[in-house]
Design a protein around this nucleic acid. Structure first.
Lengths: 190, 190
DNA sequence: TTCTCTATCGACATTTTTGTCAGTAACGGC
DNA sequence: GCCGTTACTGACAAAAATGTCGATAGAGAA
């Protein structure tokens, strides 16, 4: 069969995409060299050629997923009307964490002592809340508390929402709806 | 050196305790046969004698941790005064998830497609909320929503609270305090 | 076309991890 | 004390996972 030859960038991307779907579908334990290579449709040696070691693949995958999550947060476009913007922004915030990958990524980082990498995510949320939700009626302390609880809730919903919802016989998006309502109430109290 | 001979139950317990601390301190990846055996102070073969395979150890550990989490939830004793009980119960709920192990366990289950095991945890929380917090003023639907969001928030705080709090320069218990306040407001709204 | 560069690969070597087994030793029962 | 049971172990075997290396084959440049 003819050999596919990609640019280094395209090849790395191809491998990382395969690795990501493995991570999301089967968990971090599934990020084994042979599995990643097979999923990417290349030889083991090809993976190592681009990333050095299997740990290099994992580190690069963390970088990539965090980067995409952060830019997704920062680039969300919102209605001009400030009143609508707050509600829409909160929904979008949860949407960003709702794709199975993002919250699983965060859990993976936490379980592997890589949680310091969450800093950039937290900063992105901070930016979104400051600029888009713009709660001028909150004190600095209240604002920080709201940011903290927003991230935690978003991550919790993304990671556990579908599962726990199902255990209670609820549709998978139910948890997000409740969480958004809860935060809206929190941001409005003053 | 003299060989230590325990009852099968004591020996299993000894090994599982060692495995649990490995899980909590270094993540699921650290649950390797040699590491578990070393931490427990026994030979590899001894671990296998009691659990068959290393997967058997992991499964038994899940059982044990879930069991302890559930019984901890069910056995919490609360003040008789119903008004105090609600607030205290919510605090205790978060305490139960705050020891690093419980929330990490849940994340581990989620990442390894073992999340159906969370059913018993969810049921325990359900019981606590029904019996101890007893929100007679809420409809069935509202009650279920509150249970759902309580578990998610508790898990999120247990897993991400300390890390994210630190990233914001807050003390590690801050996230729990905010979360409790948020839920109290939710349970009180009517 | 011919050349150079290097992404790709199969085969192999190394390391890590898991599992097997026969023998040893602690404990309870007699 | 003797004996049977079995928890325990070290040494070894097997399997799985990672990593190395020389050869090959696409793709663009000259």
């Amino acid at each position: 069969m003819p050999r596919i030859r990609r640019s280094p960038e395209a090849s790395r991307e191809n491998i990382l995409i395969a690795a990501e779907s493995l991570l999301v579908e089967h968990g971090p334990q599934s990020l084994r060299l042979a599995d990643v290579a097979k999923a990417a449709g290349v030889a083991n040696a090809t993976v190592l050629h681009h990333f050095g070691t299997i740990d290099g693949v994992q580190a690069a995958l963390m970088e990539k997923m965090i980067g995409e999550l952060v830019s997704g947060l920062l680039e969300m476009d919102l209605p001009a009307d400030p009143k609508q913007a707050r509600s829409v922004a909160l929904t979008r915030l949860f949407d960003a964490f709702e794709n199975k990958g993002a919250a699983r990524l965060a859990a993976w980082l936490e379980l592997t002592d890589e949680s310091r990498r969450l800093r950039t995510v937290r900063e992105a949320v901070q930016t979104v809340i400051r600029q888009k939700i713009n709660p001028a009626d909150l004190s600095q302390e209240q604002l920080e508390d709201s940011i903290l609880i927003s991230v935690i809730l978003a991550l919790g919903v993304g990671l556990f929402g579908p599962t726990l919802g199902e255990l209670l016989g609820k549709p998978p998006e139910r948890a997000r709806q409740i969480a958004v309502k809860l935060l809206e109430a929190d941001f409005s109290r003053s």
